[in-house]
Design a binder for these strands. Sequence first.
RNA 1: AGCCUCAUAGUGUAAUGGUAACACCCCGGAUUUUGAUUCCGUUAUUCUAGGUUCGAGCCCUAGUGAGGCUACCA
Length: 563
Amino acid sequence: MSDSTSPPAKLDFIRDIIAEDLASGKHSTIITRFPPEPNGYLHIGHAKSICLNFGIALEQASSGSKCNLRFDDTNPEKEDVEYVESIKADVKWLGFDWAENLYFASNYFSFFYDCAVHLIREGKAYVESQSAEEMRASRGNLTTAGTPSPGRSRSVEENLDLFSRMKSGEFKEGECVLRAKIDLASSNMNLRDPVLYRILNSLHHNTGDAWCIYPMYDFAHPLGDAMEQVTHSLCTLEFENHRPLYDWVIDHCPVPVKPRQIEFARLNLSYTIMSKRKLLELVQGGNVSGWNDPRLPTISGLRRRGYPPEAIVNFCKRVGITKFNGTTDVALLEFDVRDALNHSAPRRMAVLDPVKVVLSNWVEEPLNAVEVPNHPQNPEMGNREIPISSEVWIEREDFMEVPEKKFYRLGPGRHVRLKGGHIIRCTDYDKDAAGVITLIRAEILPGTVGADSPVGIECRAAIHWVDVATGVDAEIRLYDRLFTVEDPDAAEGGFLSVINPDSLKKVTAKIEPSLARVEAGFPCQFDRTGYFVADLADHHPGTQPVFNRTVALKDSWVKKGGR
RNA sequence: AGCCUCAUAGUGUAAUGGUAACACCCCGGAUUUUGAUUCCGUUAUUCUAGGUUCGAGCCCUAGUGAGGCUACCA
């Protein structure tokens, strides 16, 4: 049995740079880092970064390379340990291991503070007393330079004094900040004397109330990287304009090494939103059930949806790393999901839209059970016995009163095989006043279990079924894309206006008895229907079976215009 | 408006000055007790205009289009 199609480890421009740095002797070991802020849940866009950073460390493991997990927790107002834990769980679930290399930017607060004092001493930083609004105004705009504020000309001694009083809590939030003294006329707005420290009186999840001043990302990040001796600091394209500031901080602070920031394109997926803010809006607005709603691109949502981690990792390899800001078709992701599941998921039978078939001549060759393979291509997965009796459920769409031309399944007078069991022939059927089929009558062809169809009998299809006597009712959640348009972010009425009203349909299905007893998280293929997983939150073995549709099977019948 | 970045089949990527290719999608066929899988096959690609060069997807210039930047967020 072959594994799922794991794409070969492709080279990309970042790995090229790393290979050069290794070859030239600039570095002998590579250190990368995945630096989430613990202010929300990880999504598949983060997975791309995780696969990149941890992937590189794994590829270079023989030279002692590693990837740190660092929490960039410099804004206590937004952060929480709850997120720290969920992020750790998600990284692990994806299959990556930071070993002992777990860090928090907040553990470097003293170092950051010393660096700030160093900058002040060097005349490279000053305490600003303007309000945020005043600063915005005096910073200028895209075409005109900024103007210096009174604080910019303070003496080193005064700055030292003011900054230490900021630290000791003498000032209120917003009263003053520490700014770098760089260039108010720079065409790069990030260099127009960016804020380095601000006053925040929130309780920090890690340092509690030890600090009331907190470093900004642009100050803390390069220093954190340098502290950890990171060689390549990989981030997304929106930080391109921050790189000069990153380098400025490194160049002007007493740091042991000089990491190199390299930017790559973040992941965009069609029919999907990736912004944390918008995801939060969906959660808070009740449009989805929570951060782990199976329709969300969050790692916890994808996990609950039944996406195997290797599918996500393979997908990340498949899309690669570039600086091109494109949008990847979700079809690529779904391919990897189907591909992984096709190889690993055992097959089971479930009827989502049941119609009862009564087998009138069952007594001619009655069976208690049939034996079917758990996987058509992988005998190692074994067989299982499924009870069967004189009445079975079949899928409503597997019967047509007046079959259209290429329809291979059941119809009046026609034959079909009950997968693993008899070939049956439809003899009659009942309809209600509305024309809905309520019952199908059929007869078994004795001697056809495990045998080819008898000469002269046309039987082109084997359909799935569930025994009426032993089948179990189950709640099935059929998920579809959350948005109706490819680019929800671009929707005129906003992304909320293009939510797919049919993104979740719940049906009560008939499932084979073994399925009612599986553990939550059990993945399988419902024969001919799709891949499903026992819901992590609501499925209870034996008492309350609940399954999520992970992804439907490809279906060239409906595609060709079949019903 | 200024600065930065990007542009290769429908989508994502490769080709590192020397015959434009791979995966997905699409379409067709074979096999199939899943209209799945697997296998085989088909269609289609270098944004535009100049320049350098024996030779340009690749280097240069200009244009066009897309993204980013004017937070005491990251």
